[in-house]
């Protein structure tokens, strides 16, 4: 009976394994990957690397599952979810979801003031003052980086990351 149960579980896992990689999965991975190319300058006493998601309608559980056992800058990763600007606390990365379009201007002001690295897929995000924008061309992910905020008092984006991203003028 136990063997049957085991086979059933394995087959169930394997059958689920064969799903197409989605944009959300890829975005979740890229958020962590680009974090490796950003250096936080100020003394960082936090024990965890914090990624905050503003209005989590996008990722379901991708981020939690992916970063459960990962480390970024030698720190375990903690995922926070907030619904409004007042809830944003100290964070290394703030991911602004597509469903936050109307709050975007206020978020950018807040994060610029607090020198937070922001990432979003929203159209025109980098040019409007966000730090990193994800976008897709022919099913492939691409990056745009705002050239006004690559080297701030709080963080610096590596030249390696800048070399593979499209640099846009922003902060208007």
């Amino acid at each position: 009976m136990q063997i049957i149960k085991f086979i059933f579980i394995i087959s169930f896992i394997l059958s689920n394994l064969y799903g197409a990689s989605s944009e959300d999965e890829l975005k979740a991975v890229v958020i962590g990957k680009v974090s490796h190319f950003i250096k936080w300058k100020k003394e960082d006493t936090s024990k965890e690397f914090i990624i905050t998601v503003f209005q989590n309608h996008a990722f379901d559980s991708h981020l939690d599952i992916l970063y459960k056992d990962k480390k970024i800058h030698n720190k375990p990763v903690k995922i926070n979810y907030v619904e409004n600007i007042q809830e944003i606390e100290f964070t290394h990365i703030l991911y602004v979801t597509k469903h936050s379009q109307k709050d975007q201007e206020a978020i950018i002001k807040h994060t610029q003031k607090n020198s937070i690295v922001t990432i979003s897929e929203n159209k025109g995000f980098a040019q409007r003052g966000g730090v990193i924008q994800l976008y897709f061309v022919s099913q492939k992910i691409r990056l745009k980086i705002n050239n006004e905020v690559t080297d701030t008092p709080n963080f610096k984006i590596s030249s390696r990351l800048l070399s593979i991203a499209k640099i846009v003028k922003g902060n208007d």
């Binding site: 394994l17 990689s21 989605s22 890829l26 991975v29 992916l66 492939k140 593979i164």
Partner: peptide, 29 residues
């Protein structure tokens, strides 16, 4: 349980790739 394991396996496979390799990954149509 199986969904969680699945997602983890999937995303981990992607996480092993370099940023350049991720740029070549095609997402769902």
């Amino acid at each position: 349980f199986s969904l969680l394991v699945t997602q983890a396996l999937f995303s981990n496979e992607l996480y092993e790739k370099s940023l350049d390799e991720l740029f070549a990954v095609e997402t769902e149509l």
